[in-house]
């Protein structure tokens, strides 16, 4: 474990970023953007936040590539379930 991965400076930077994009998420709502754009924006912000936490706080970014893949790739499967359910919900139900 090298010292760099756990440097305080990086954590503070990430923390500030997290706060900044969380606030950005709030500001966008009253702007009255079209629904899909608003949703897209919100989801991108969530992914960015998640990415920051996973990459720096959980320092996955500094782990071996094989570990990164073994953690992230399986998540595709649960996303597939969500996509199938949303598709099913919007096209067929009730």
């Amino acid at each position: 474990m090298s010292k760099q991965e756990h440097s305080k400076k990086v954590y503070i930077k990430v923390w500030i970023w997290l706060l900044a994009i969380t606030i950005a998420g709030f500001i966008v709502s009253p702007l009255g953007l079209p629904g899909w754009l608003h949703n897209l924006f919100i989801v991108i912000i969530a992914l960015m936040k998640g990415g920051l936490i996973v990459a720096y706080f959980m320092h996955l970014k500094f782990e071996r590539l094989s570990l990164i893949y073994s953690i992230l790739l399986p998540l595709i499967l649960i996303v597939a379930l969500a996509v199938a359910l949303l598709y099913e919900g919007t096209t067929r139900f009730l």
Partner: peptide, 18 residues
């Protein structure tokens, strides 16, 4: 095996495209 679950549901009222 993770992306085949719908074959238990062909005639369950699931979207035929799925």
């Amino acid at each position: 095996s993770f992306i085949v679950w719908g074959h238990h549901m062909f005639v369950s009222g699931m979207n035929p495209f799925l």
